[in-house]
Design a protein around this nucleic acid. Structure first.
Length: 166
DNA sequence: ATGATGATTAACT
DNA sequence: GTTAATCATCATG
């Protein structure tokens, strides 16, 4: 997992901000539960609920580094690259859809497990929202290739650009 | 490389 | 009727 965003109850960009509705009910469902919703009519976005039941707060999974099952991801995505570098892309690659909304992510076919020890993590403002724009609640691993949108500059050093072609 | 455009669902006003 | 936690595609420099 190389990029996430946090959404908190008092945060105007959070779907839970105005209280529970039919669409967002599972963001209140308690820690470890998935909140999945349709964005722009096309994409499904996967969140992990973090606070206790009744509190609407979650982490949006924005990008992953594919480790296993790359062939299947390519098949689902219909292209060889850009498999998990974006919140809509990764759900397509993983086969996540609305049926996963409200599911328990601590067990079953879609389970969160500990991965590598995290390296450097950088916080920036969040992407694609119109409110709560200044909150620095997007977290990414700046060295990772599979991040969706790379910040122009990184704290303390200039942009380090990786060569893409041979 | 960057910028514009439109797709398409569901919930909300 | 409007909006939306996005992305693929097409245009242009």
């Amino acid at each position: 997992m190389v990029e996430t965003e946090a959404y908190r109850p008092e945060d105007p960009a959070c779907h839970a901000y105005k209280g529970p509705t039919m669409r967002n009910r599972n963001i209140f469902a308690g820690p470890g539960i998935a909140y999945v919703y349709v964005s722009y009519g096309i994409h499904r976005l996967l969140n992990v609920v973090c606070e206790e039941e009744g509190i609407g707060s979650a982490v949006l999974i924005r990008a992953l580094r594919p480790v296993e099952g790359v062939e299947l991801m390519q098949e689902r995505r219909g292209r060889p690259k850009d498999l998990c570098n974006g919140p809509g892309r990764l759900t397509q690659a993983l086969g996540v859809d609305i049926a996963h909304d409200g599911r328990d992510l601590t067990e079953g076919p879609l389970t969160l497990v500990p991965g590598e020890e995290p390296g450097e993590i950088v916080a920036t403002t969040r992407i694609g929202i119109s409110r709560g724009v200044d909150l620095p609640w997007r977290y990414l691993a700046p060295g990772e290739r599979d991040v969706s949108v790379r910040p122009k500059t990184i704290e303390g050093r200039g942009l380090r650009r990786e060569r893409s072609r041979a």
